[in-house]
């Protein structure tokens, strides 16, 4: 109960923070991407409450906000895990077996792309080229790149974050 309450308070506090942040974008229809990026930096993801706030402040439709969020893989509608795993599916990684890496990550974590593990620890995403083609296939966990992967290296890497 206490935990739930804390989470709720934290959520409300972050909403407040986003509201403050958005003030500078009032009525600026063109500021959608920056606004969403900053909001996601604060909240970690973009729940409907944030989307409505952005729509209202920028004077655009909620539909346009949602459309934009779902177009860019960078934005997330769901809370992200403590460790965010992004699997590169750019050309070089792809031809060197990125899909097998991704499949192994899914089995190890028991989640699909775009989801977060129940303990809130890991979230899994696929992304376009991360510019580490020399290390293909590669993944990024938070800000660290892990390259020259094989599916069997995955469990050991995940263990580091236990």
């Amino acid at each position: 109960m206490a935990v739930a309450l804390n989470q709720q308070q934290e959520f409300t506090a972050k909403l407040k923070q986003i509201e403050e942040m958005l003030k500078k974008y009032k009525g600026q229809k063109g500021a959608l991407l920056q606004a969403l990026q900053e909001a996601q930096n604060i909240m970690g993801y973009l729940p409907i409450e944030v989307q409505e706030m952005v729509a209202e402040t920028l004077d655009i439709t909620l539909s346009e906000v949602y459309s934009t969020i779902t177009f860019y893989s960078f934005f997330s509608l769901k809370p992200k895990g403590k460790y965010q795993i992004r699997t590169c599916l750019g050309t070089a990684c792809y031809v060197r077996g990125a899909e097998k890496i991704l499949d192994r990550l899914k089995t190890e974590l028991g989640i699909e792309v775009g989801d977060t593990t129940d303990d809130g620890k890991f979230s899994l995403n696929a992304c376009r080229c991360i510019g580490a083609c020399g290390l293909a296939p590669a993944i990024i966990i938070n800000d660290e790149v892990y390259g020259r992967l094989t599916p069997d290296k995955i469990p050991d890497i995940l263990k580091k974050f236990e």
Binding site: T61, S63, E64, Y66, S67, T70, F71
Partner: peptide, 8 residues
């Protein structure tokens, strides 16, 4: 404005 292209 209640419909838009969602996803990609």
């Amino acid at each position: 404005g209640v419909i838009s292209p969602n996803y990609r």
